[in-house]
């Protein structure tokens, strides 16, 4: 938590302050550090001096982190705006707020948050010294043996392009009308299934039909099974699913109806 130790902010040989920008949690952290380090009265911040030091400190932000740069630049812009407001002649009304007031409020508030988060860190450490009775959620064991990667970079790249990004938690659920009705599929199955004969599930799916056709055909198959018009067979997981017309005099079917 102690990100801004004295060593990160020390006068260099030429009198210029050297700051490792990565050590700071953000622009307020840096600003707080500058003010504390120089014993500046927070209610009378020398804006010109602080702004100069702030701008010097953020020189080191690389082009690789635009988000971070943006956050620091936004604060720099705020400092410059405050300085400009201070230079402008101010109306003589008493209720006119010091342009620095909002910044001071944020600094005080941020410092308080820092203090609280340090307290939380201590509470976390104390709590970590006590353990619950050892329940460790079972971890999946890696049983796959190491195999050499027999693929080209192009293939990896192509595969990576095909990976869809995880959907955000707050995803919108779109309700779309079904393009295929289940009833039409029920009719299709009954029409095609002759008495006693079986047909593979895939034979009900024509060329050019999409996933929705497959889903609705499966639902129709399940519905007909429920109505005891047909029955389904599959020899092993992921194998072809067969649909059979149900016949009441079929001894095997009758036997299946007996409770085990």
């Amino acid at each position: 938590m102690a990100t801004n130790s004295a060593s990160t902010f020390a006068p260099a040989d030429d009198g210029v302050y050297v700051i490792e920008i990565e050590r700071f949690h953000g622009p307020l952290d840096l600003l707080l550090h500058l003010i504390r380090q120089q014993d500046i009265d927070v209610f009378d911040i020398p804006i010109a001096r602080i702004t100069r030091q702030f701008l010097e400190a953020i020189q080191g932000i690389g082009p690789g982190d635009l988000d971070q740069a943006g956050e620091f630049l936004e604060m720099a812009a705020t400092l410059i705006r405050i300085k400009a407001q201070l230079l402008l002649p101010r109306p003589e009304s008493d209720d006119d707020e010091d342009p620095r007031a909002e910044l001071v409020r944020r600094l005080l508030e941020y410092e308080q948050i820092r203090e609280i988060s340090q307290r939380l860190e201590r509470a976390e450490a104390d709590r970590a010294r006590r353990r619950v009775r050892g329940y460790v959620p079972p971890r999946p064991r890696a049983v796959v043996e190491e195999t050499p990667l027999e693929t080209t970079w192009d293939e990896v790249y192509e595969a990576a392009l095909g990976v869809s990004l995880p959907e955000s938690r707050v995803s919108e659920h779109r309700v779309t009308p079904r393009t295929v009705s289940m009833d039409s599929r029920v009719a299709l199955i009954l029409d095609r299934l002759g008495r006693g004969a079986g047909l593979p599930f895939t034979s009900f799916l024509g060329a050019g039909e999409n996933r929705m056709h497959g889903v609705m055909t499966l639902l129709a198959g399940l519905e007909l099974t429920r109505r005891r018009a047909i029955f389904l067979r599959q020899t092993a997981p992921f194998h072809e699913l067969w649909l059979y017309r149900r016949e009441d005099d079929d001894p095997e079917v009758l036997a299946e109806e007996e409770p085990a």
Partner: peptide, 29 residues
Amino acid sequence: ELPVVLRDRSMTILPDESPEDPDQEELPL
């Protein structure tokens, strides 16, 4: 109950340096 350094230091410095600072009251101390 938090010891806030900025506030503590400023509170002790302010009355001596700028006792009449009107901005002081504007701040949500």
